[in-house]
């Protein structure tokens, strides 16, 4: 498959962003390949109600 792209005028006045986090990208320009992966976990024990116990330290 051939994709023909013609980039004509692109003019932006203002970009306002509160935050960029967790391996994110703000790109003003061109890129050939962008591959983003993300894993997020809130396991059942993510909400612990009870006495504060330190989490298992590094083994």
């Amino acid at each position: 498959m051939n994709l023909q792209v013609i980039n004509r005028e692109l003019s932006v006045g203002s970009i306002d962003i509160a935050g960029v986090a967790s391996s994110s990208l703000v790109l003003i320009g061109d890129a050939d390949i962008i591959q983003l992966t993300s894993a997020f976990d809130t396991p059942p024990e993510s909400l612990i109600i009870g006495p504060f116990v330190p989490l298992t330290p590094k083994g």
Partner: peptide, 27 residues
């Protein structure tokens, strides 16, 4: 851009290959 954090990038210009990965565990 008020804040940029955790391996994020603000890029002005061209690039070729971008690979980014994020893993978060929330407690």
């Amino acid at each position: 851009i008020r804040a940029t954090a955790f391996s994020s990038i603000v890029h002005v210009g061209n690039t070729s290959n971008v690979a980014m990965e994020s893993r978060v565990k929330h407690i």
